[in-house]
Amino acid sequence: MADVGIRDVAARAGVSVSTVSNVLNRPELVSKDAAQRVQQAVADLDYVPNVAARQLRAGRSNVFGMAVINITNPFFSEAVLGAEEVAEEAGYSVIVGNSYDSFPRESRYLDLFDRQRLDGILLAPVSDDLSGLERFVKRGVPIVLVDRVDSSGAHLSVSLNDVQGGVLAAAHLLAGGARHIAFVGGPFYVAQMRDRHEGVERTVREAGARFSLIETNTLSVRLGRELGDRIAGMNEVDRPDGVFGANDEVALGIMQSLIHHGVSVPGDIAIVGYDDIDFAASAIVPLTSIRQPSIEMGRSAAGLLLSALSEPDEPLKSVRFEPTLVQRQSTRPRV
């Protein structure tokens, strides 16, 4: 109910307005029974505390909202750390939401950020649909897209050249002698996956080598192990001798499975991952990976947001970082 207020909750729970206020703000002052009745009334009436009104009286919330695709991916968790570092230095807090590869979950977080009237939004979007940001634009709330370029030019953005990341990975595998390279990644409604795929496939085909696609709906170590089982079971004619995992987790899972099945890495199959997470260097066969400057990207995104708040009439900026390849033992030296 859009018009439900604190008095409605109090009436439903059979308590005073001050008791409802205490349950919401200082629950230690309220008995367990009263707290349970108030919480049930809040749930029954779908009551949302009017935080916005308090914030409007104060002028600003001093809070940013940040929604990322998957917080379990070390790239995004480090980007959050970088953003929090810069925001906190400027006196801001960051509310973090994990979309977990789900557009509906992302939309619910944006709804939450809107209700809370936050000062700015940092968003690593799940898909290309950015229509949910229009309400913030209308209210003059600055938005920074993280790990994504906005082709329309309507939003600030911090991104990585993922096409070049794919080119670097494929060129390195080819230089080590691979002649059949498989791209393992997805989902392709995520722009980063499309860009990495584009870079790999184009480079492989231009070199006259064989390209295979193993498309996935997510990326995890567990899925990597399952795919590694499948790759290990292929006959040598069909099996790739180079694998690019679209993140380090899936690449590490593939490598674990291949080694378990007696497939030599990199002797039989060379592997490159993406993100250069901490575990990449400490794997049983240290993983070659495409490094993203995740913390720096998070810092840059928060910095852009702060600049937009202090200088709202300045032209929109787009910051693009370049990837680098970190070679380790999972790939062969140049032939």
Rank of each mutant, 00 (worst) to 15 (best):
G166H: 02
S264D: 15
R105A: 15
L173P: 13
R7D: 09
G176D: 07
V319S: 07
I143D: 03
P104F: 07
F136M: 04
A58N: 09
P312H: 05
Y109M: 11
S93D: 12
I71Q: 02
P74L: 09
S102P: 08
D114W: 12
S18I: 12
Q116C: 06
G228N: 09
E236S: 13
P125W: 02
Q36F: 02
S330R: 15
V141H: 02
R12D: 05
T331N: 08
Y100V: 02
V51F: 15
L325H: 08
S212F: 00
L213S: 00
A246P: 06
V137R: 13
L227N: 01
A301R: 07
V42H: 05
F103A: 14
L133N: 01
A2I: 13
F76M: 12
K317W: 00
P104C: 08
S31M: 07
L110P: 10
H197I: 03
D147Y: 10
R239G: 10
P266K: 08
Q292W: 01
D119V: 10
R179I: 01
D229G: 08
G82H: 06
E88L: 13
D278F: 06
F321C: 11
N73Y: 08
E206S: 13
G233Y: 03
Q55R: 14
L258K: 07
G132E: 12
R57Q: 15
R205Q: 13
Q192H: 02
V38A: 01
G97R: 07
I214C: 08
E314V: 04
A11P: 04
I69L: 15
L287H: 04
V30T: 10
R328C: 05
G176N: 00
A207K: 08
F321M: 03
V221T: 11
R7P: 00
P315H: 09
S300V: 11
A283I: 11
A283E: 03
V167E: 13
A169V: 01
V190K: 14
D33P: 03
G253A: 11
H172P: 01
G267R: 03
